[in-house]
């Protein structure tokens, strides 16, 4: 693909971003990150309070990307089979089997939205793990492929009753975990209260142009972006140090008040995690019209691609959100480049 095509795609990405920004206000950061994830072909986990617009945001992206869109709600009694098929008695009085949300769109499934993922049981998580990692599913003596699939999931950290902690293996398969917070600007908050267009989410999403992006071209585009954006030796060294710092922060003189840094980390970022980070850094460079990755590209996505992968000592697990943010900031502050 020529540079011109890369430029055209970049313009398309900018259009996608601006269209989403029109309907979801005050979330420029998360929107940029989700755009990045779409072009990096990575799964996204949204984390935030109830009613902050996580579902609306993901639905808006699903509409703009096109392709098959399916969703399921995480509940405590949800079983893996519910994702694959469901049975019912038809009008003819006979039992029928129809495809579940995963199979309904076939190979064209581009976005699978798992609402409140932490309410589902670990059995469901494990099925999802395979779909996310391998993009395949075995059912009805047949192998199904989902080459264009991206999983969007959300969870709220406030309610913990009847929820299951997402295991670290499952978290690691998400490219990013993006926190969604209520925008602090008074004007935006006032608009959200009084501007009636924000009151009906479905109607609002309809204003986003559908099929803005050709979903089945994204995989190839992602390969091209990854191969055309360069990373220098200095950047390799810098990234390596960042990775090491997630494993042994004390060696980089990283300190967090009230935390025994030597006890904090049980396991740092995985090789898959750090390669995902690099993938998103390349896309960030591409979105910013650069041909090489800079430390600033890494800074832009570091917390969102790294924080959810770190396995903390159980003593500190309850304060994960707060500690992870502080830790990633400290890592970026203490590791120098070049």
């Amino acid at each position: 693909m020529s540079d011109q095509k890369l430029t055209d795609w970049r313009k398309l990405a900018a259009t996608l971003e601006s269209e989403i920004n029109k309907v979801i206000v005050g979330q420029e950061g998360p929107i940029r990150l989700i755009t990045n994830a779409i072009f990096s072909r990575g799964h996204v986990l949204l984390e935030g309070d109830v009613g902050v617009g996580k579902t609306t945001l993901l639905k808006a992206f699903a509409r703009a990307i096109g392709g098959g869109y399916q969703r399921i709600e995480g509940t405590i009694d949800l079983m893996p089979n519910d994702l694959i098929y469901h049975t019912y008695l038809g009008e003819d009085g006979k039992p029928h089997v129809s495809e579940g949300p995963i199979l309904k769109s076939g190979e064209d499934l581009s976005i699978f939205f798992f609402n409140e993922i932490n309410r589902a049981r670990p059995q469901v998580h494990s099925l999802l793990l395979r779909i996310m990692a391998e993009k395949t599913l075995s059912a009805f003596n047949k192998e199904f492929y989902f080459p264009h699939l991206i999983v969007f999931a959300d969870r709220n950290q406030v309610e913990r009753e009847e929820t299951f902690e997402i295991p670290s293996a499952a978290r690691d398969r998400f490219m990013m975990e993006i926190p969604i917070i209520i925008p602090p600007e008074d004007q935006i908050m006032t608009d959200l209260i009084f501007d009636t267009k924000f009151h009906d989410g479905d109607k609002l999403i309809e204003t986003v142009p559908s099929n803005l992006i050709q979903f089945d071209a994204l995989n190839d585009l992602s390969h091209i972006i990854q191969s055309s954006i360069k990373a220098s030796k200095s950047l390799e060294d810098y990234t390596l140090n960042l990775w090491k710092a997630t494993k042994n922060p004390e060696e980089y003189n990283i300190k967090i008040s009230g935390i025994d840094i030597q006890l904090l980390i049980i396991s740092g970022a995985s090789p898959r995690g750090i390669s995902m980070m690099m993938k998103t850094a390349r896309v960030n460079a591409w979105l910013n019209n650069r041909t090489s990755v800079l430390p600033e590209d890494i800074h832009a996505i570091f917390h969102e691609t790294m924080a959810h992968r770190l396995v903390f000592n159980p003593v500190y697990e309850l304060r994960r959100t707060e500690i992870a943010r502080e830790l990633s900031n400290e890592i970026l502050n203490k590791v120098s480049a070049p």
């Binding site: 430390p295 600033e296 800074h299 970026l332 502050n333 203490k334 590791v335 120098s336 480049a337 070049p338």
Partner: peptide
């Protein structure tokens, strides 16, 4: 020149006691 720039970066890092970037 690489050494010169690295020294300057390290000087800034020491001055603010953390890594200095343009942002």
């Amino acid at each position: 020149i690489k050494i010169f720039i690295s020294d300057l970066h390290s000087g800034f890092d020491t001055t603010i006691n953390q890594s200095l970037f343009e942002n």
